[in-house]
């Protein structure tokens, strides 16, 4: 008999005895625990900003693409860097020409193939990316793996992520509810810069991924 059949058979045999676990009443306030709160835009922005700071991320805001480009350019220069890898997407597209005009060389991973791509992106200090959706409650960026290159999201040391205020959802329940089923299946959720506390529980930012994560909220 093959392994699959044997495992399923032995599970079925095991389950012939019903559980002796105490009967569980359905939790009464359950609906509240998994509810999607009605939050106004400003409230979501405030939550997102506070949570981002709480997870050692950084937060900036911009009222227009031009303002975002200006602030991002300043961050790149401060890094200090003269180039950045970028993700695809409308928010990045909106700032990229201004960034290039400002003298920052932008590398689009999609223009490179295979080993050349990862090796190039890994050498670039800064990544400028966008999150199609973000969760206010935990300051989580949600990026579906929809064919875009993901490398600029996790290979650079400094990642600047553009987020549209309109795309903020209250919590994870809302996130998964809103997202098309096909998109949820291949998804990266990012909450803050990478970290470890494996040595004496001392928190150090920048484990194998980014050391800094800057969220740039676009109010536009």
């Amino acid at each position: 008999m093959d392994a699959r059949q044997q495992i399923l058979d032995s599970i079925r045999r095991a389950l012939e005895t019903p559980s002796h676990l105490p009967d569980e009443a359905a939790p009464e306030t359950l609906s509240e625990a998994i509810a999607i709160p009605e939050l106004g835009l400003e409230e979501k922005i405030r939550l997102f900003r506070d949570e981002m700071k709480a997870v050692s991320g950084e937060y900036i805001e911009a009222a227009s693409a031009a303002e975002a480009a200006e602030k991002i350019a300043a961050l790149v220069r401060e890094a200090p860097a003269a180039e950045a890898s970028i993700s695809s997407g409308p928010l990045v597209d909106a700032v990229s020409s201004a960034l290039s005009a400002g003298g920052i060389r932008l590398v689009k991973p999609e223009t490179l193939e295979g080993d050349a791509r990862k090796n190039a992106v890994a050498k670039i200090l800064v990544g400028i990316v966008e999150a199609p959706c973000a969760v206010a409650d935990t300051a989580t960026l949600a990026i579906p793996l929809d064919g875009r290159s993901m490398q600029a999201y996790f290979l650079p040391e400094i990642v600047i992520a553009l987020v549209s205020a309109k795309s903020l959802v209250a919590n994870h329940f809302e996130l998964f509810k809103r997202m098309p089923p096909e998109e949820r299946k291949n998804l990266l959720l990012i909450t803050g810069p990478s970290r470890t506390a494996d040595i004496e529980k001392i928190l150090i930012l920048g484990a194998h991924g980014p050391r800094r994560l800057v969220a740039c909220l676009m109010r536009d």
């Binding site: 989580t140 291949n186 990266l188 959720l189 909450t191």
Partner: peptide, 11 residues
């Protein structure tokens, strides 16, 4: 409240 990365791998 949330781990830094949640990788959802579906193919």
């Amino acid at each position: 409240k949330q781990t830094v990365y949640v990788n959802i791998v579906g193919g």
